[in-house]
Design a protein around this nucleic acid. Structure first.
Lengths: 240, 240
DNA sequence: AAGTGTGAATTGATTCACAGCC
DNA sequence: GGCTGTGAATCAATTCACACTT
């Protein structure tokens, strides 16, 4: 993934491969979009096309959740939406705290995908005293001193770190000490956490750099016909 | 990735595995941080700790670039920074266009990691006529009609799509038609692109949902001692 | 006839463990 | 003696191809 891997080969319990878990949100979104268009039944081929993966992978992924399809027919959209949502934990309400209300924190507080679908921004927290009390997207910004109190009162277990790099580890330590067990890290540093705490990293600069790597190769192969002759595997799936 | 995979098993040319490419930005950043702290030589063990990976993986990754270390000693920080930067294409200048100047586009335009280190925001583009001419982070916002002209004049090959989902595919098609061959997609839809064009997806909602999945499992195992007895593999690496 | 679910085969990534070099 | 670089072994993910169900 692009984010950093949670170091656990198989998800606990029924044992869903991590690669499959990472695609469930994609399937969920595609299914919701199909449902909104009035589609009631979908084949693995169709759903795979909508999600931009191949159908064998989709079927294998769904088979890890259970046998929710009908041979010769396909999957019932409503039923599958529910099953995937339940598996992802979207049928419960997750209060989330966002630490760091800079440009990115601001954008995240307003981001639709964060506020809808199971998640709710319980509080915004920032170091900067000047911001305290300010309203962002209708939500007040609390000072960092209130962090532990907010986590306890709202039963927050998932936090978003959108602070500058140098303070991210300190913030993370406080989050974990206060009871947070899942962290989404936007700061450009690897966070150290104790066992049992999950971290996923979203690294905007890295993503651009990975694109630049491939872009450079493309441009090189235009200039040097020798390497340009190396066969490229076909791109059948949609990406992104 | 957390981001969607570029569908090419090995990078062109010398054949660097995609998983290795995805970690090079991490190593680059860790090396720069070490250099800033005055470190001149580093062992695979030390660098791996700084980057949050294990040392065997780091050595294998670096071995794909070449033999840049010294046995019994370690790696010269300056030299390795340069080699990794060169491999990533950071020694050249990449003009980037950002399409969509909503909350997220705004944040990205201001984001340090985007503007420094090889990348330069050549232009901001938005559909909204009201925004046209406005200055964001000192950069003017251009109307969508100017998209092709901007790409041609600035020789843009990398674009960032930060538009709402419904228009993302249209924008992407125009970008590709105008010559863009790498796209960083923040819109919550899979983009269809022709062969030879790379797309990476950053999906904030997905990342939260993946955390929620694991969080739900943790909470379930607290309630049901039976599954709580299932052994957890140790977490030795840092994540995020 | 259509299309899921899944063993088997393949491909890719990670980890081990040590030979080789400084 | 210490540490890199790398074959070999292991582990995970993907793809194939078809038996089975409706």
């Amino acid at each position: 993934m692009s984010g950093s891997r949670v170091e656990r080969p198989l998800a606990r319990g029924r044992g869903i491969p991590e690669a499959t878990v990472a695609r469930l949100p994609l399937y969920h979104r595609s299914l919701v979009a199909l449902r909104e268009r009035g589609v009631t039944t979908v084949s693995s081929e169709e759903l795979a096309a909508a999600a931009g993966v191949n159908s064998a992978k989709l079927r294998k992924d769904l088979s890890h959740l259970g046998s929710y399809g009908t041979r010769g027919v396909g999957y019932d959209v409503d039923y599958l939406v529910y099953q995937v949502a339940r598996e992802l934990g979207l049928t419960q309400d997750w209060p989330v705290v966002i630490v760091g209300v800079g440009n990115l924190g601001h954008a995240l507080a307003n981001y639709g995908g964060f506020t809808s679908r199971g998640f709710r921004v319980a509080a915004l927290v920032d170091n900067d005293e000047a911001l305290a009390g300010e309203l962002v997207n209708g939500l007040p910004v609390y000072p960092l001193a209130k962090l532990e109190q907010i986590i306890a009162e709202h039963h927050v277990s998932i936090a978003v770190v959108a602070t500058p790099g140098p303070v991210a580890q300190d913030v993370c330590d406080r989050l974990v000490a206060a009871g947070v067990t899942s962290v989404l890290n936007f700061a450009p540093v690897p966070l150290q956490v104790p066992e049992g705490v999950d971290v996923r990293k979203v690294d905007l600069a890295s993503e651009l750099q990975i694109l630049a790597f491939h872009e450079q190769r493309k441009q090189m192969s235009l200039l040097t016909p020798l390497t340009a002759l190396a066969p490229l595997p076909p791109r059948t799936e949609a990406a992104g």
